[in-house]
Design a protein around this nucleic acid. Structure first.
Lengths: 215, 215
DNA sequence: ATTTAAATTTAGACAAATCTAAAAATTATA
DNA sequence: TATAATTTTTAGATTTGTCTAAATTTAAAT
């Protein structure tokens, strides 16, 4: 499997995880910042290899084989992220690009040994689940902060947007995985939130609140 | 820099390290298991980028820029080998292929943090020196076991051949880095050696003795 | 010093992954 | 339901790294 094939599988996996319906050529092209014609070419190739179910003009989904392959890439990506943060002391906003490279290293033994070395973590530094060697995922029920009501209290267990900019913003506000967050007030005018994080109070926009997962 | 370019630089680096004279197209082709014509194409490209000194039909050498780039690849390779052996508990015959992949991961910060995490080792699991972040190498004067005389005693500090087969042979004979080796007898007929490793005595061929470094 | 052999380079082709531009199919709109 | 707009696919070109086969250069041998 080439790097490019792996990247397509991963993208299709992430896109189907959101809604479960077939993914469009354009959606893939947009996410991968490439052209629709390139996507079509690759979909034919992946279909030939039985990694995707592809019908011309009708969109695409992963086969069981493709889904397992995608999960193994995600597994590698997230385990490497754990390694970078926990062992090499990277911050959570720095690890994505490096993990994008490391996820393509081919060695099952390596990734399983890395898994053990890290203590078999179930979540990466952004709170996303890590598939096990068989592709099984432990799902944690969680809600977006924006769905919470006044006076509710929860613990930050993940982020939806994992961009460096957003993660740095959270660092600045001292919001991290494990932080206790309490809704003090919802502002109906702009849907912003007044929240308490630990002992501090602050106001966050709806966009911010829509990217923080709470349990 | 592409994977392929990096692999060529590394190969030229290793070949020049042996003799210091210019490397031939064929020597590169043989080492990389590719065709001479492919090598020629790449040499033109590397020359264009000022990474090698290349004169048609006259062989090739690395420029300062090329040598530094090559050293950084070797640095990455050997640091990853250390990681695999010391942290993930791989044996020294298993790490080469995985390190061949890992050496192409692009992030200076990563490799420097890895270096620190490992305690800034100066040698990899085969006894080969690890260039520092500036490309400096600490050279250890060492001899081949085959150059030793009767009754001399030394410590195994490295291996010349790092193939899995050879390393597994050494494991079987309980010869490892740090092992004390004493020449009991040199057999003039076939140039084989009777040696003592720790408390055990064994006979090794000249070929074996020519691939073990002693200090 | 020629001729022969070996090494190296050039020329042209190919596969992978991408692109642009044009054609075809689907979806939305009037 | 036609027609327009959008989406998707096809056709053909490009880049990178490789190959084969032929041509060229260098080295070796008579």
């Amino acid at each position: 499997m080439t790097f490019s094939e792996e990247n397509y599988l991963k993208t299709i996996y992430h896109l189907t995880a959101i809604s479960d319906i077939d993914v469009s050529t354009n959606a893939i092209a947009e996410k991968m910042e490439t052209k629709a014609s390139s996507v079509t070419d690759m979909l034919k190739k992946l279909s030939e290899k039985d990694l995707v179910n592809y019908i011309k003009y009708q969109g695409v989904s992963l086969t069981d084989k493709g889904k397992l392959a995608a999960k193994m890439i995600v597994r590698k990506h997230r385990l490497w992220e754990c390694f970078l943060v926990e062992k090499l002391d990277f911050s959570w906003d720095e690890v994505h690009d490096i993990a994008e490279q490391l996820e393509h290293i081919k060695s099952e033994k390596l990734i399983n040994k890395l898994d053990d070395f890290l203590g078999n973590p179930t979540e990466d530094p952004h709170g996303d689940p890590i598939p096990d060697a068989q592709g099984r995922i432990i799902k944690v029920e969680k809600q977006l902060l924006s769905e919470f009501d006044k006076n509710q209290i929860g613990i930050c267990v993940g982020v939806k947007d994992t961009s460096s900019d957003f993660l740095k913003y959270l660092d600045k506000q001292e919001i991290a995985l494990g932080s206790q967050i309490e809704i003090i007030e919802k502002e109906s005018f702009d849907s912003s939130f007044r929240i308490r994080v630990g002992s501090k109070e602050l106001t966050v926009s709806n966009k911010i609140a829509s990217n923080i997962y709470i349990k």
